[in-house]
Design a protein around this nucleic acid. Structure first.
Length: 492
RNA sequence: GGCGCUAUGGUGCAACGGUUAGCACGCGGCCCUUUCAAGGCUGAAAUACGGGUUCGAUUCCCGUUAGCGCUACCA
């Protein structure tokens, strides 16, 4: 035991009962930021002690979510299901030193009548039931017992919380919580409870800071009692405020997407999601909100964690995404776009070669200010990556009906572009404006109509930059190809 | 019901005894303009309520109310 080492050791301990949800991701992120900020150790532990609820295959989904967020770990993943002997030994130790007892109450009975009703009636005399097993009088002898912690009848239990301060609870308010479930069948012992598994592992893994959701505050005095019974020092706890849905109730399936991978699939950038998540329940103290990962790492402290539950505000997440889409170094964005285009089958290998890469990079750079989510590169920007695109009806109605001579103007523009001695931004613009002036129409009318003709949409990057991105040959071809459709719209 | 936590605009955060209560998202307006974004400027919008403590409370204490959490042989 390297007691001289001061490097913090933290852990993220999800249970594989579902995907990695937003709340879990935030907990993982804060643990990770804390560890990396302090040069500490991040441990991943899978709490799979409930054989019925856990599904091993879900672990991979959780790891996927963590990887997408860029959260890595130094030790693990450890599986509690493979460390059962450890918990049995700890339970035995508690039994031997008198801090636990064998409970023969049928599970249903302990939970139901004994606990709730009786506790209610006796009012302020004794609010928490203590079953007779704890005094050595099994209520239903002969059945396989569970192990419960024998909470002291008086006194208080306290612990330090880096976020909420010092907390103190009266022991009489703490029930004799479960340590070991009763064994079924032939096993020598049952499975450990969450409380036992978490504490035994946190001791064994020498966890110094327990950073987890605030829903565990009420569990903490129980765990503090357990640490003491096991002869271990308490770690410093840090409880994180909960993340709520827009209706201020706990985030759940009802609120739509709650798994981090669904945000990945929607096309959010991990950097943006991470920045957004970091600010849900934490701030660096000032007004700065746009924090790259390196800044997050540098500035993260538990002192900056807030105590109030926060609402997951999707519009703000989207804002962060657009910010990152625009500000990320282009080379960092390219792989994500490539991935997206492959997904939509628009990707061409030539863009990976040096010559094609330059075009690809410049085009993505041209497109990015107007993109909100990665899939927009495939849908909204389709005409830049494929010659197969359609004219949006709304765009035709908006820009192709203003001027009856439009078909001939489009043809003139096509000819002018084809004849240009130099193919560059200003030359294109001058040529187009000259046509507008000669015809006595506003340049904007031709510009907007031309945009629809070459990309099929009313919205696109500035026209002449779009010209350069598409290339002269395609621009001319698309302009000529659009003439019949323009005529049709003009007549309508 | 019991125990606990929390309480600044609609939302996320600042202000950690003294500010005209700040920033951002969202919403409205204006500017820019070649469409749409982006960007710039700008408007509306908050200290839950009641008592204390203090020269002075958003800030400290108590109560009320509200929300949330725990109260499982779930984690």
């Amino acid at each position: 035991m390297p007691s001289g080492s001061s490097a913090p050791r933290v852990r993220f301990a999800p249970s594989p009962t579902g995907y990695l949800h937003v709340g879990g991701a935030r907990t993982a992120l804060f643990n990770w930021l804390f560890a990396r900020h302090a040069g500490g150790v991040m441990i991943l532990r899978i709490e799979d002690t409930d054989a019925e609820r856990n599904k091993p295959e879900l672990v991979e989904g959780i790891l996927d979510g963590l990887r997408w967020l860029g959260i890595d770990w130094d030790e693990g993943p450890f599986y509690q299901s493979q460390r059962l002997e450890l918990y049995a030994q700890a339970a035995q130790k508690c039994l031997e030193n008198g801090s636990a007892f064998l409970c023969y109450c049928p599970a249903e009975r302990y939970v139901g009548g004994d606990h709730a009703e009786e506790g209610q009636e006796t009012g302020n005399v004794r609010r928490i039931s203590r079953c007779s097993c704890r005094d050595g009088n099994p209520s239903v002898p002969g059945t396989k017992p569970a192990v419960r912690f024998k909470v002291p009848l008086g006194g208080t239990t306290r612990f330090q919380d880096a976020v909420f301060g010092e907390r103190e609870f009266a022991n009489e308010d703490i029930e004799d919580f479960l340590l070991m479930r009763s064994s079924r069948g032939e096993e020598t012992h049952g499975l450990p409870s969450y409380q036992l598994g978490a504490v035994v592992d946190d001791i064994d893994m020498r966890i110094t800071h327990v950073i987890r959701g605030a829903d565990h505050i009420s569990n903490t005095p129980k765990q503090a009692l357990l640490y003491r019974a096991l002869g271990a020092e308490l770690p410093l706890f840090a409880h994180l405020p909960l993340i709520l849905g827009a209706d201020r109730t706990r985030l759940s399936k009802r609120h739509g997407a709650t798994s981090v991978t669904s945000y990945r699939d929607e096309g959010f950038l991990p950097e943006a999601f991470r920045n957004f998540l970091a600010l849900l329940g934490w701030s660096a103290g000032g007004d700065q909100e746009f924090l790259r990962t390196s800044e997050l790492l540098e500035k993260f402290t538990l002192a900056g964690v807030s105590r109030t539950n926060g609402v997951f505000d999707r519009p703000k997440l989207e804002w962060f995404n657009t910010q990152y889409l625009q500000k990320l170094p282009i080379e960092d964005l390219l792989p994500a776009v490539e991935n997206e285009l492959k997904r939509s089958k628009l990707w061409k290998e030539e863009w990976a070669a040096p010559a094609g890469h330059e075009w690809f990079s410049k085009t993505v750079d041209l497109l990015r200010p107007r993109i909100r989510l990665l899939p927009d590169f495939s849908s909204w920007s389709r005409a830049f990556f494929s010659d197969e695109f359609e004219y949006e009806q709304a765009a035709r109605d908006k820009f192709w009906k203003k001027e009856p001579r439009l078909p001939q103007f489009i043809a003139q523009i096509a000819d002018a572009m084809a004849a240009l001695p130099d193919w560059n931004h200003d030359a294109c613009e001058h040529a187009l404006r000259a046509i507008a002036e000669a015809a006595g129409v506003k340049a904007g009318v031709l510009i907007n109509a031309t945009r629809v003709a070459i990309v099929g949409q009313a919205v696109a990057p500035p026209l002449f930059e779009t010209f350069l991105a598409l290339g002269r040959e395609r621009v001319v071809r698309r302009l000529r190809a659009a003439i019949p459709a323009v005529e049709e719209s003009c007549k309508a």
